[in-house]
Nucleic acid binder design. Structure first.
Lengths: 348, 348
DNA sequence: ACGTTTCCCGGAAACGTTTCCAGGAATGTA
DNA sequence: TACATTCCTGGAAACGTTTCCGGGAAACGT
């Protein structure tokens, strides 16, 4: 085989042993110096650092975590619905920042709301011996999560409530946020309020729908099922559904509550297409970029993904750093309401 | 110290040796079976799998990559400007999908356009012995990238051109995309076209500005420097800058080219605030969500982050899988133009 | 001056795996 | 039947690091 000229002089070839030899000290001493452990004479520290630098030594983190007592890899994993959606990516960023502060790296994956995919991701991550897991659970992997947790890996579930032993959660009060917003519409005089909801397999979606129902029962007002569509999962589907409701129901709604990002956008499109924006009120759950630039501006129940991510990271890092709380902790971060116009349209 | 009752029965305690013992075979055989290597009797394979399952054996990927000949960790790293911005996260998603197909996991980090931060990330990633690196380079880390590449780690740079030995790149033709769009405005009769640009330290920003200049010289039309603002880095700054140009220059522009996402949004805000949307033409570089929902719809030069990410992943995985191309490869994915109205406004 | 403690240091074992190598059985050939 | 070849298998070495442990020197107390 021919010698390849400019190719890989020697990949990571220089090891601690080389450093030890050059510095004229033992292997153990090099390890102590590299890890900043106390009890090494100053001149030796100097010699080792010098040798390491001269040789271009690079510490191998994976090899070190193998023998290390705590077996830490300084890596956590983040399982999101889709790294590309705004909520997920804002959360991701918050987690990254929190992790960075402790020099911890973040692995990510998108489940696309499929339990099998989530399962596979979690499996791959734990195989890599991550120190902890932050998951937006699909709801179909509770057994796996419980097992992983029992084997020692800290887990924080985000956005969806799960009840598992020593698994922390961070959620927002979906029910109350929705209830308050729908109540606003009712107080404004709206009597027929349509509701578009996400898949009922998702805890969040169920909670929000409950909030819608509670708002109605709170004022003793029945809901008309013909104004409710659940299990909608895309902007297009929402656009279609709300269009249908507005044009076929004989006594059409004067307001719409869209229980998710994409559904809000789909609804907005439909209203505009029908020339009803400005006439039919709209409130969405979860803010989205440029919502303020639309006409009318879209009012939303807002949740703060940065705050959620930060909280999740805090809980996780707390456990990783030995805070072995026996019980699961459930943090709830508040929702807000952002009035931009569309939610303030009164009934005709 | 008290025995903690329900806590971590034994973390990952079961090893290949245990499996070997239970199956009554040698350690080497277990390894062969787990890795699906040929040349093991069928009944032994069966016995090993059975034992592994009964014991709940979990393969330790980090330990295996230590001794493994190719030293692969089945992990790649992705250094983005900010995982939370739409362009980056779409790219991220595309890379994730491509990597998933080969069971490779993705580590991510945000440089925030700071060379030091980028350097630090790359350092951490290579310490983890990732198999490859996809980077949106700030431009201040060429030396480091060259070193890392020389030591054997494949690298693909994305969105910005760099000229380094055996470092592949994926870019879009910023210059041509901008030139064509500005030319459109000129052909429409616009004679005074303002330009808002990002920081000139970024290759992309320089290229786009060149395109703007080329379009003008192409029709023998001088550019008025008072209509040009460079080194703008936020929507607010853009809003301010364009507002200033429109109100203080005596012969104000009839069209604006905003060379980046946020700048486009800032410009739109300013135009709306001044009541000039619908009267002053606007074209932005890079599409953004809901651009079609604004009034007027915002015309943009579009680039396809999914395509870019896919291409980058393909190049990287190609090299990881042994395709040792001696030369650097530079892929260029085409830009498009999406007409939505704002770019089609004629001069008064 | 002598025992005891403390402090540093280096050799060797260990982490969980893959790979090398050699040996034994089974198969093929003369 | 004898011998060469192929195929399977398991013991042991190796990967790069951390940790255990024992030993020598220095510091301390009397």
């Amino acid at each position: 085989m021919a010698e390849i000229p400019g190719d890989e002089p020697r990949r990571g070839k220089v090891t601690m042993r080389d450093v030890a030899q050059r510095a004229g000290v033992g292997l153990a001493t090099v390890s102590r110096v590299i890890n900043g452990k106390p009890g090494v004479a100053a001149d030796l520290i100097e010699r080792v650092n010098e040798a390491a630098h001269a040789l271009g030594y690079r510490h191998d983190v994976t090899a070190s975590s193998l023998r290390r007592a705590d077996r830490r890899t300084a890596t956590i994993a983040l399982v999101l619905e889709d790294v590309a959606n705004p909520f997920s990516s804002a959360l991701h960023r918050a987690v990254e920042d929190a992790a960075r502060a402790e020099n911890i790296l973040v692995l990510t994956g998108s489940s696309d709301e499929h339990p099998e995919r989530e399962h596979e991701l979690i499996d791959n991550f734990t195989l890599r011996r991550v120190d902890g897991l932050i998951v937006v659970p699909t709801g179909g992997t509770d057994g796996q999560l419980a097992t992983v947790r029992r084997q020692g890996t800290p887990i924080v579930c985000v956005d969806r409530l799960v009840e598992l032993d020593r698994v922390d959660t961070v959620t927002v009060d979906n029910r109350e946020g929705t209830r308050a917003a729908v109540r606003r519409l009712l107080d404004l005089g709206h009597r027929r309020i349509a509701y578009l909801g996400d898949m009922r397999s998702i805890w969040t979606a169920r909670e929000r729908y409950e909030g819608y129902l509670e708002a109605h029962s709170g004022v003793g007002r029945p809901v008309d099922e013909r104004l409710v569509r659940l299990d909608i999962r895309s902007a297009d589907a929402a656009e279609h559904a709300i269009g249908e409701i507005l044009t076929t129901v004989d006594d059409p709604p004067t307001a719409v509550f869209a229980a998710q990002n994409l559904l809000t956008i789909g609804t907005f499109r439909a209203l505009e297409r029908l020339g009803l924006h400005g006439r039919v009120a709209l409130i969405g759950f979860d803010d989205f970029p440029l919502a303020d630039m639309l006409r009318p501006g879209v009012s939303v129940v807002s949740q703060d993904p940065t705050e959620i991510g930060l909280m999740a990271a805090r809980l996780l890092l707390g456990r990783i750093n030995g805070g072995d709380h026996r019980h699961a902790r459930h943090a709830v971060v508040p929702t807000g309401y952002i009035a931009r116009g569309s939610g303030e349209i009164p009934p005709p």
